[in-house]
């Protein structure tokens, strides 16, 4: 009966399952309250873009989702499991289902591209056959269009290529959720558009759910199914890109002014 109730709670009106549920989340660093009362959900197969000024706590929020930072209070459930109550083993298992693309790519700079992709695979999957591992690496690199970089070192790659390799490293574990921390920051407009299209392509191919932290309105426009605006520690606005852009609230529409 309880299970049934939980299942009902876990469904949205449009019958999509909730994969991330955050309620009254708070996080402070010393006396600086960064997240004051965050309430949000991410549904299965949905791309949610979070907009907000720099230093407002967007990265802190997604780091809480993977347990890199623990919130001070509130509830944070991923696949209906409370993060704070997980053992380290459970958390590690969850982390294989939740990919994270770091703002600075975070490629292991002492390893080649192949070794970067091999690293999570060897530690989290029971595959030992080198042919299967090689096949998975090539498949992940094909997804991001960079098979020819397999033996290169990260220092030999451009910013856009590093982003793609970071994405390939995340994809190799076939995650159900991907968290993107400013995926287009520091890239030229053309490469930004390519990365945004790649995010969409991945969502379509692997049916992933995503949270995308971004300042880039073009990226938000291309990738978002729904957008949230984070301001002063709370979610101040929520809606589709065009709804927010054409909002009567001047404060919200000011986010979309390009000049």
């Amino acid at each position: 009966m309880i299970e049934q109730k939980e299942n009902i709670n876990n469904k949205l009106i449009n019958n999509q399952e909730i994969v991330i549920q955050i309620e009254h989340l708070k996080k402070s660093f010393n006396k600086n309250a960064v997240l004051k009362d965050i309430n949000m959900v991410v549904n299965e197969g949905e791309n949610v873009v979070i907009l907000g000024k720099s230093g407002i706590g967007k990265s802190v929020l997604i780091k809480c989702i993977v347990g890199l930072i623990y919130p001070d209070s509130g509830s944070l459930k991923v696949f209906n499991k409370e993060i704070a109550e997980m053992s380290s083993r459970e958390l590690n298992t969850l982390r294989t289902k939740v990919g994270f693309i770091f703002q600075g790519n975070a490629l292991y700079d002492s390893m080649t591209v192949k070794e970067n992709l091999e690293f999570p695979l060897r530690r989290n999957k029971t595959i030992t056959d080198p042919h299967i591992i090689d096949g998975l690496i090539v498949e992940a690199l094909e997804n991001v269009g960079l098979v020819d970089t397999i033996d290169k070192m990260p220092s030999e790659l451009s910013g856009g290529m590093k982003k793609r390799i970071g994405l390939a490293r995340t994809l190799i574990l076939k995650p159900d959720i991907i968290l993107y921390d400013e995926p287009t920051t520091g890239l030229d407009p053309l490469t930004s558009r390519e990365i945004s299209s790649l995010i969409l392509k991945i969502q379509d191919k692997y049916k992933t759910s995503s949270i995308i932290i971004s300042h880039d309105l073009n990226c938000a426009k291309i990738t978002s199914n729904r957008m949230l605006i984070l301001h002063e520690g709370v979610i101040r606005a929520e809606g589709k890109f065009n709804e927010l852009k054409n909002s009567n609230d001047e404060w919200i529409s000011s986010y979309f002014k390009t000049d």
Partner: peptide
Amino acid sequence: SMRVTEQIDAMEVSGTN
């Protein structure tokens, strides 16, 4: 340098201790 470039965090989120 691994810490400040988030490589240690990347290791952690990929399920490696």
